[in-house]
């Protein structure tokens, strides 16, 4: 191929016969690169968006999980305290029962004493009738 003086001067013509400073190949490749870069940037952007969404979602999940966890702890604590409450209630009831038992014992003694009095009186009546 004959050396084109123009090309030597660094000027070229492209297919559309327009004057170019860059070689057509290089120019084309540059354009291609540019296209590719744009594609790449677009894709990256898309990726970031997707990842952002994901992160958000995970965060939300984390929050949810945390909440549930707290709930669970609370519930567990509540359960424990209920047991304790029951214990306290039981203790209270035990105390009340002990009190009632004491009262019952008092009544039992009173009843016994009264029964004895009754027996004595019956005996007296019998004796009285017999003697008459």
């Amino acid at each position: 191929m004959a050396k084109d003086p123009l090309s030597e001067a660094g000027l070229h013509f492209d297919e559309l016969n327009k004057l170019r400073i860059l070689e057509p190949d290089v120019g084309q490749k540059t354009t291609e690169l540019k296209e590719e870069c744009k594609d790449f940037v677009d894709k990256i952007g898309q990726f970031q968006k997707i990842v952002g969404g994901l992160i958000e979602m995970v965060d939300e999940l984390a929050k949810e999980a945390e909440k549930e966890k707290m709930k669970a702890i609370g519930a567990r604590n509540l359960l424990k305290s209920v047991a304790k409450q029951r214990e306290a209630q039981q203790q209270q009831l035990q105390a009340l029962i002990a009190e009632k038992k004491m009262q019952l014992e008092r009544y039992r003694i009173e009843y016994e004493a009264l029964s004895k009095v009754e027996a004595e009186q019956n005996e007296f009546i019998d004796q009285f009738i017999l003697q008459k």
């Binding site: 004491m102 014992e105 003694i109 009173e110 004493a113 009095v117 004595e120």
Partner: peptide, 18 residues
């Protein structure tokens, strides 16, 4: 003829006298 006595534990005890 009835004596009513309160014991130290609080129970009432009765005793009859002739």
């Amino acid at each position: 003829t009835q004596v009513t006595v309160r014991r130290a534990d609080g129970s009432l005890v009765y005793s009859s006298v002739s």
